[in-house]
Design a protein around this nucleic acid. Sequence first.
DNA 1: TCTTGACTTGGACAAAGTCCAATGTAGGAT
DNA 2: ATCCTACATTGGACTTTGTCCAAGTCAAGA
Lengths: 140, 140
Amino acid sequence: MGMSDLLDRLRGRGWRLTAQRRVVAEVLDGDHVHYTADEVHAKAAELLPEISRATVYNTLGEMVSLGEVLEVSTDGRAKRYDPNAHHAHQHLVCSRCGTIRDVHPSGDLLAGLPAEQRFGFQVSAVEVTYRGLCPGCAAG
Amino acid sequence: MGMSDLLDRLRGRGWRLTAQRRVVAEVLDGDHVHYTADEVHAKAAELLPEISRATVYNTLGEMVSLGEVLEVSTDGRAKRYDPNAHHAHQHLVCSRCGTIRDVHPSGDLLAGLPAEQRFGFQVSAVEVTYRGLCPGCAAG
DNA sequence: TCTTGACTTGGACAAAGTCCAATGTAGGAT
DNA sequence: ATCCTACATTGGACTTTGTCCAAGTCAAGA
C-alpha cells in the first residue's frame, strides 16, 4: 500500500511525475500520523529544499481530488492529510484520554438520513464519531 | 427557547448586558442555519452598525464557554456557531460552500456500532456529519 | 450621580490558504 | 539525442479567519 501505487495512478492519469510530487508522496507514505500542509512542506523541504508551499498545497489538493488522500479538519485549525484513505472508516474517541480507534460500523450510514431531512442536498458522504470511555479510563 | 433565556443566564452570571451582546444573541436566535463569525458580524452590524469584529468574536467565545452555543468546525474554513446546543441533532454540510443545516436522522445511531467494534469502550454519544452539495451549489 | 472594573474598539499582527505572472521542465515528437 | 510546449513550479502578493492589545467607553452597584 505504498505511495508508489499512488505515483503509478497519477502517471496513469497523464500526470507528470515531478521531483516535487514524488517527495510529497514520500512524506505522506511515512508514519501513520496526519500532517498539516505546513508540516508536509517542512518534511518535504528536508528532501527537496527548494520546494514551495504553493506546490505542496497544489499536490495535496490533487491527491485529495484523486481520492488517494483524505482531508481531515478536526479542530478548526489547519487541515490534516490522511494517506490511509482507501477503506472508509469511522472514529471511536475516548472522552477522557482522547485515544482514537478506527471502527467499521454496520449498515448503510447514509440511509439513516430520510429524504425529508435532506433539504435538497445531494448527500454523498457521512462521517461518524463515536464517543465514550475507553476500558482503561472506565476502570480508573 | 429564545435567546432571552441566554441573556438571562448571562446576566445571572454577573455578565454585563450590553447592546453588542444583545445583538449577537438576536442574530443567533434566527433559523437553523449556522453562521460563521463574520456572518454574525455582518448581521449584527445591520442592527448595530458600529459593532466591531473583535466584540463579535469575544461574545461568541463567551457563549461557547457557557455551553449555550456550539462551535462547529466542519471544514478547514471558518468555524460556525450553532445556537441549538440543547437538543441532540446532527449536521448536514455543503462540501462546496460550507453551509450547515441541523438534521435529525432516523433510528438509533449508536446501534450502528456492533459490540465487537466497541473495543471495550462504554460508548455514550455519537456525532454524525453528512456531506454533499446544497441545492444552490449543485445548480451552480 | 459617581466610580470602577469590565466591555468595546480599531488596528496591528498572525496563521492558513489561494492566486498569479514569470520561469522551469517532463515527456512526447522529431 | 534534442527540441517543443503544455503543464508544473515558484515566490510573493493577497485573502480569510482569527487573536491581541492599549486606549476609550459604559453598565450597574454604592
